[in-house]
Computed example of a mutant assay.
Amino acid sequence: MIRDIHEKLLALTDEEKQILNGEIEVDRSLYTDNGQFIIDSDKLLSQGELIDIRKHTRFIKFPEHKHNYIEFNYVYQGELKEIIDNKEINLKKGELIFLNQYINHELEICSENDISINFIIRPEFFDYILSLLDNENIISRFLITTLYTDYKEGEYLYFKVAEDEKVQEILEKIIIELYTDGMMSRVTIKLLVGLLFVELVKTPECIEIYSVDNYDKMIIIQVFKYIHEFYKEGTLLEIAEKLKQPDYKLSKLIKKHTQMTFKELIQEKRLSRAIELLKARDLSVVEIMQKVGYENPTYFYKIFKEKYGVTPMEYRKKDNK
């Protein structure tokens, strides 16, 4: 992070100065005109803005609240302790949590060296993000469903990505841009946030998901993680045993939340992986077919063409042009 922006992040805000001078409660008028503590994006974003960032207020406990926008909390340095539905989440440096607009949460007191950044994002911003994500990725599909359905319960996605250099590099670029007015266009910010999402959905093993009063969705994300790792030989019976769920019940849950069967999810993952290997051009089609879990070439060619409209060889030739 360039020194000038680093110093801005460490500097005291006017609100923090008031707290250090004896203010014992958060000034709610800075965040909402509503009697309930629902933070209003209009208080934090200029008219027409879809995304901005602000440093999280230190030295005081931030009481339980909701917000009418999507929020990312990113720990720049130190840590951030959040309490969501009586569950304490301890975010460390480099980690990121995604909060939907229905979540009810509070934040413990941060010390001087605990610097967290709140990304404030209006829901309509994600109309653009949707266009950048790969709809064939089952993790991506799950995240999109979380964002765009009419489900009205609080949810979070906790990304333990402190060691992911690509993610950290993108976050740094976004922060620099938002703190450096006029350095690049707002279109570039959208591209960077889109790229961030693309990178995040590549790491399902680093995602912890929580849905208030919705145990089913926690089960489904475990299914997705299992498919991501064991798509070649995984079975419904095996994941049902791992999750201590009857296979018939798990099958119904999968269909309910994804509109697909377990077999269809496995096939989507296998074909998606086959596409990646075809693009790499290191293996023959037969080797790719076997690597993703198929033994019958006729069947593999049939389902591939049904999905993509061309044979694997035709796809590779087209991709090479």
Rank of each mutant, 00 (worst) to 15 (best):
289 M>I: 01
123 P>F: 11
63 P>S: 07
306 E>A: 13
70 I>R: 13
95 E>H: 02
153 E>I: 09
122 R>G: 08
35 G>N: 14
104 N>L: 08
299 Y>T: 14
100 N>S: 09
50 L>K: 14
81 K>I: 08
185 S>R: 09
4 D>Q: 15
47 Q>K: 15
133 L>G: 10
256 K>I: 00
60 I>D: 12
229 E>F: 02
119 F>G: 06
274 A>W: 02
24 I>D: 14
52 D>A: 10
107 L>F: 08
18 Q>R: 15
152 K>S: 15
6 H>R: 15
296 N>G: 03
95 E>G: 03
167 V>P: 10
278 L>V: 01
56 H>K: 12
45 L>S: 05
275 I>L: 08
94 G>C: 06
174 I>D: 05
113 N>P: 01
201 V>Q: 12
34 N>M: 09
255 K>F: 01
275 I>Y: 04
150 D>M: 11
18 Q>D: 14
301 Y>R: 14
287 E>R: 12
137 N>L: 03
31 Y>G: 04
216 D>E: 10
174 I>L: 10
91 L>W: 06
254 I>C: 03
157 L>K: 13
85 D>C: 00
163 E>P: 02
250 L>C: 00
236 L>F: 01
230 F>K: 15
35 G>Q: 12
28 R>C: 02
117 I>H: 07
47 Q>E: 14
138 I>N: 05
93 K>H: 02
233 E>R: 10
182 G>F: 03
24 I>G: 06
43 K>T: 01
320 N>R: 15
159 F>E: 11
77 Q>Y: 00
272 S>A: 06
178 L>R: 06
230 F>T: 08
163 E>T: 06
118 N>D: 10
221 I>F: 13
28 R>Q: 12
139 I>W: 12
321 K>V: 11
53 I>H: 04
264 E>C: 03
190 K>M: 09
273 R>Q: 14
1 M>V: 09
236 L>C: 04
176 I>K: 11
227 I>L: 01
177 E>W: 06
2 I>Q: 13
233 E>L: 10
240 A>N: 03
42 D>H: 10
258 T>L: 06
120 I>H: 05
160 K>I: 00
256 K>Q: 09
173 K>P: 02
253 L>F: 02
308 Y>A: 03
177 E>N: 14
187 V>M: 12
48 G>T: 09
222 Q>F: 01
32 T>S: 12
156 Y>A: 03
261 T>N: 01
47 Q>N: 11
319 D>Q: 08
163 E>M: 01
116 S>K: 08
3 R>Q: 15
299 Y>F: 11
3 R>H: 09
159 F>R: 13
203 T>N: 15
157 L>F: 15
102 Y>N: 14
194 G>V: 06
80 L>P: 01
266 I>Y: 01
37 F>H: 06
84 I>R: 00
61 K>V: 05
218 M>G: 06
131 S>Q: 13
75 V>D: 04
112 E>F: 07
127 D>N: 15
28 R>E: 11
302 K>Q: 11
299 Y>C: 05
297 P>A: 03
95 E>W: 05
190 K>R: 13
123 P>D: 12
